[in-house]
Amino acid sequence: MGDDYSSVWSYRLKWLYTLLVVFTLMLPVFYVIYVSFNQNGFGAAEYVFTFEWYGEIFSDLLLLGALGNTFILAGITLAVAVPMGLIAAKFYKATEAKLLTVSLLLSPLFVPADILGSALLVFFKNLNIACATIGEWLGVSWFDTWFELGYFSALVGLIIYTLPYIFVVILITMGRYNEQQTEAARSCGATAWQAFVQVEFPQIRAGVFSACAFAVILTFNEYTRTSLLKGGYDTITSVLISQMLNEGMSEQSYAMSSLISFIAIALIGSIILYTLVQSERLEREARAKAEPVMSG
C-alpha cells in the first residue's frame, strides 16, 4: 500500500522490521515452548523431542490445584469485571464528568503492580483490624473475616487490574455505534433495557467478547497483585515463580506455561481473524453507503 510513488521495497522492509520487533518480543515465549518439548528439560546439552511433559501436567497435583484456583479467579473476574466495564462505558458516554471518570478508570494502568499490591495489602489488613475491632464492640463476629486475605482480596486486585483494559476495549467498540439507533428504538416503544439488549448489544458484541478474552488472559498471567493478596492458596503463576526462584521450573511447568500460551495465542488469533472478517464487512457496508446501489 502507501502512495503510488513510494518504493515497494521500502514498504516491505518496514513490514519486515515490524515483524522482527514482534518476533523479538516473542523470543522468550518461543524459548519456553522449545524447552517444553525437550525430553532432557531446561539447560540440557542434548535435545530430544517429546510430548511427555504435557502428559505429566495432569498428574502434577500442585499444578492442577493451582490451575483450578486460577480458573475460579478468572471466572469470577470475568463475571464481575466485564459487566462493570460495560456499565462504566455506558456511564462514561452519559456523564458530564468525563475527565474524572476516565482518569479513575484508566489510572490503574499507570500504577505499577507492586505499588498497588502493597497499598491494597495494607488496606485489607487495616479493614480486617477495623472489622474485628468493631465486631468486638458490638459483640458480633459475623463480619470479622470479610476482608481477610483470600479470594476476595485477590479478586479486588484482579478487577482493578483488568477493568481499564475491558473499559477501553468496550468503549472503542461503542464508538462505532450510532447512539441514534437507541433513540430510534426508544421511539418505537422500547424501554431503555430493551433498546440495549435488542439493538445496541448485538452491535457491540464483538467488543464485549474481546473484553472477556482479555479478562481471562490477564488473570491467568497476573502474578504480582495476586501473590500479594491471595493469602494461603496458590495460582499458576505463583507456583511457577516459587519454582523459578528456588530450584528452577519443573519440566511440567514449562509444558503448562506453553499450554497456556498456546490457548491464549489461539484465542487472540481467532479474535484477530474475527475482527478481520468484521472489519471487511464494515468496509463493504461503508462502501455501499458511499455508493448507493440505486438512486431513489
Binding site: 450510532n178 441514534q180 439507533q181 433513540e183 430510534a184 428504538a185 426508544r186 421511539s187 418505537c188 416503544g189 422500547a190 424501554t191 431503555a192 435488542q198 439493538v199 448485538p202 452491535q203 457496508e285 453507503k289
Partner: peptide, 30 residues
C-alpha cells in the same frame, strides 16, 4: 415521560436503521 410512553415517533437525520435487521424487521420492530 420517557420516549416509549409518548404518543410520538421519530425519524432521524442520520441513517439510524438497525444494521442487524432487514427492512421488514426494521419496520416491524415497534
Amino acid at each position: 415521560q420517557p420516549p416509549n410512553h409518548r404518543p410520538t415517533s421519530m425519524v432521524f437525520q442520520s441513517f439510524a436503521l438497525f444494521p442487524h435487521m432487514n427492512v421488514a424487521q426494521n419496520i416491524g420492530y415497534g
